[in-house]
Amino acid sequence: MSFKIVVLAKQVPDTRNVGKDAMKEDGTINRAALPAIYNPEDLNALEMAIQIKERMEDAEIIVLTMGPGRASEIVRESMYRGADGGCLISDMKFAGADTLATSYTLSMALRKLAPVDVVLCGRQAIDGDTAQVGPQTAEKLAMPQITYAEELVAVDAKSITIKRRLERGVETLKSTLPCLVTVHGSAKECRPRHAIRVMRYKYAATPSELASAEESRKLKVEADKRLQIQEWTADDLGAEAGRLGMAGSPTKVKKIDNVVLVHKEAKVMDGSDTSINELMQELVSAHIIG
């Protein structure tokens, strides 16, 4: 009886390193200028999945990602570090999804992967910072949830015990399985790629990628089931069209404002002794300090 762990991972634009060319002149986002990366906290989730696998006999890790075709990179990256297989769910119908539509889509894919024992994902993705998709996916599957996981305390066939990070301390929760766990950035960092795994999985591909691949890669993937990344569309998931993408998203963006800084009349000075002394004097006489 195999123990199945699914990691939900997302490819995100690297909003932490937004350069000066990240915004176009018309104020829209220049996505091309932002590198696509593995959402950082999803890597913490992958690490926790590997730790669970190490403690359980006969466990497997499947990575599930939703996005455009190139998001298959996330699956391969996960395989290099310890995942056993992966699925990409990709469809134009998913475009414009808010967290409710996204969690519905993910929950339908998880149903297809059932039975699942533990679902892990990062607490939040850096392109939205909402932290909503994890709990909403858990709700759709009627699973209990443990959020902000920092440390795996124990796991067995029926339960999982997790230490979680709160604003002012920690709390240890024990939940029945299946359970969804969202992992905090303060959890253990993900182990790096493993050279042997890179050698083994570098040819892994989705059917769409294979269609345009060289013959030799096609043969390799056809011969080895582990290299076959699943690729599912809305129809494969049996999803209701009205609950996907923009149509399934109750939140609408009414407007987007660019961040325009209104320049105040600032007093500009250098860091010399005289300037600092004058400034301090001014603050004291204005009773701002003192």
């Binding site: 808010d98 967290t99 409710l100 969690s103 910072d129 909402t130 932290a131 909503q132 998709v133 994890g134 709990p135 909403q136 858990a138 709700e139 759709k140 949830q145 959020t147 902000y148 709160l166 604003e167 998203s249 109750p250 939140t251």
Partner: peptide, 23 residues
Amino acid sequence: ATSVGRDMAPRVASSLMCGLTAD
């Protein structure tokens, strides 16, 4: 938007099939 609110509000929204905006 605390560790309590951010934990349960998404679940409530999902159950009621409502939109939710964080932070």
